[in-house]
């Protein structure tokens, strides 16, 4: 099962500069674990120790933010595209 994963600039240090990599997994959590096996360290940048997605990153399945799906338990299908983007946020507080 092949899933294309779009990698943001800030995480390309883990992918030898590649803008997109391919991974596998029945869920987003499995996909991230699979990515980490070939790109060690990337998982820790994406998920907290409890497995929930970090609030500093947005992960999309095709056009949908996975927070509006099932988060890291979101199911994936062959041919899906996953896009990772750094959240753009901040503020005075």
């Amino acid at each position: 099962m092949a899933i294309e994963v779009r990698i943001p600039t800030i995480l390309r240090t883990y992918t030898d500069g590649a803008k997109a990599v391919t991974g596998a997994g029945a869920t987003l959590a499995e996909l991230i674990t699979d990515l980490d096996s070939r790109h060690p360290g990337i998982r820790a940048r994406l998920v907290e120790e409890n497995g929930e997605l970090r609030r500093f990153v947005n992960v999309y399945l095709n056009d949908e933010d996975v927070r509006f799906l099932k988060g890291s338990a979101t199911e994936l299908t062959d041919g899906d595209q996953v896009t990772i983007l750094p959240a753009v946020a901040g503020g005075a507080r």
Partner: peptide, 14 residues
């Protein structure tokens, strides 16, 4: 005291 790009807007932007 806070700003945030909407996640859908962010995807379309990128």
């Amino acid at each position: 005291t806070f700003y945030e790009f909407d996640s859908g807007d962010l995807l379309r932007l990128y």
